[in-house]
């Protein structure tokens, strides 16, 4: 569809390159189920914004490792347009946008589609309860997240998911929540606590080897994918994996993404995918996955804390050594 306000490609349409053999990026990474990937998080990289943050997951070890990159900027509190009704609370809006070059396969256009709207709504929900909106009457707090690079696909049609649940979108949402929280803390907006996002998944393994093709073979026979998974479950071992990556190559039977406030021990968002509780108490299994996601998000929270502290110390140093000494002291009122 032609977007009149942008320069468009040829009218006949173009297709992404088709390769002779499908390239398999799937590397079977021997990461222990409870190890989280290293995150690079830095705040204050967009000076025009009130607060900003940049997140990269995982910190790349090789040049060609696909990574998830996001930037977030926060503006506010700023005046609402005068047509809005009076509100004694601030209005928090969050918008998430994918860049055209962020996803593999087909290039995304600029037009906002359902996926972006959905994730933006989820992001607003996750962040909404953490900000002290009562302290900023008649104003708007705007959070913008731009996804520059997705690791794997987003579960669009045509992506290979190996027959399991696709965690690409969940991973993007969880990291977007963490990045936006870091930006809000950087802005100095009053919050009750910082929300961190985490993902966990139930993964099918058999004898330590990831079974990629077994589900596909069953599908060929014409079975329903759910049935196939159930069959697999009875045979294989199911492990809870924290922070699964879409390109790890696991078959993920079910996954959960949460937004969690660590200091207050409260969840602001829970999103689960896949069927849980095939053989056993389903409540137990749901709890198990959600707890796993909470553990993952607690790990991310530590990274956010470090990044915010680092930025604060940098600001203090810029203002002179006097402040620096007070920090190492016991914070008493002798400092004026």
């Amino acid at each position: 569809m032609t977007d009149r306000r942008r320069i468009n490609g040829p009218l006949e349409g173009t297709i992404p390159p088709v390769f002779l053999t499908s390239s398999t990026h799937k590397s079977i990474i021997k990461r222990s189920p409870t190890t989280l990937r290293k995150i690079f998080l830095k705040t204050g990289l967009t000076p025009p914004a009130t607060g900003s943050a940049f997140l990269e997951l995982p910190t790349p070890s090789t040049h060609s490792t696909p990574t998830l990159k996001l930037t977030s900027s926060v503006y506010g509190p700023r005046p609402l347009p005068s047509s809005t009704t009076f509100s004694s609370n601030a209005r928090l809006t969050a918008e998430l946008k994918f860049s055209p070059f962020s996803t593999p396969g087909r290039r995304r256009g600029y037009i906002r589609d359902g996926v972006e709207r959905d994730l933006s709504a989820q992001l607003s929900i996750a962040l909404g309860k953490s900000v002290a909106v009562g302290k900023y009457p008649k104003s708007a707090i705007d959070v913008f997240v731009s996804v520059l690079d997705c690791e794997g696909g987003l579960g669009d049609a045509g992506d290979e998911a190996g027959g399991g649940v696709d965690v690409g979108l969940m991973s993007v949402l969880a990291t977007a929540i963490s990045c936006a929280s870091a930006a809000i803390a950087d802005a100095g907006i009053e919050c009750f606590d910082l929300v961190a996002g985490g993902v966990a998944g139930l993964v099918l393994e058999q004898g330590g080897v990831v079974e990629e093709d077994r589900v596909e073979k069953s599908l060929e026979v014409g079975q329903d994918s759910d049935d196939a998974r159930r069959g697999m479950r009875k045979n294989g071992k199911v492990t809870l994996v924290l922070d699964p990556s879409p390109i790890d190559g696991y078959i993920i039977l079910a996954a959960a993404a949460v937004g969690y406030m660590a200091a207050r021990d409260e969840l602001t968002l829970v999103w689960t995918k896949g069927s849980m509780g095939w053989d056993g108490d389903s409540t137990d299994e749901v709890e198990r996955i959600v707890d796993g996601a909470i553990t993952a998000s607690t790990g991310v929270r530590l990274v956010i804390n470090e990044a915010v502290k680092e930025r604060l110390l940098l600001g203090l140093k810029e203002m002179g050594l006097i402040r620096g000494k007070a920090v190492s002291g016991d914070g008493d009122a002798a400092m004026s």
């Binding site: 002290a132 100095g188 907006i189 009053e190 919050c191 915010v308 604060l312 402040r323 914070g331 009122a333």
Partner: peptide
């Protein structure tokens, strides 16, 4: 509620 330096007055 914000990231900063705590003080007692």
């Amino acid at each position: 509620s914000v990231a900063g330096i705590p003080r007692v007055h």
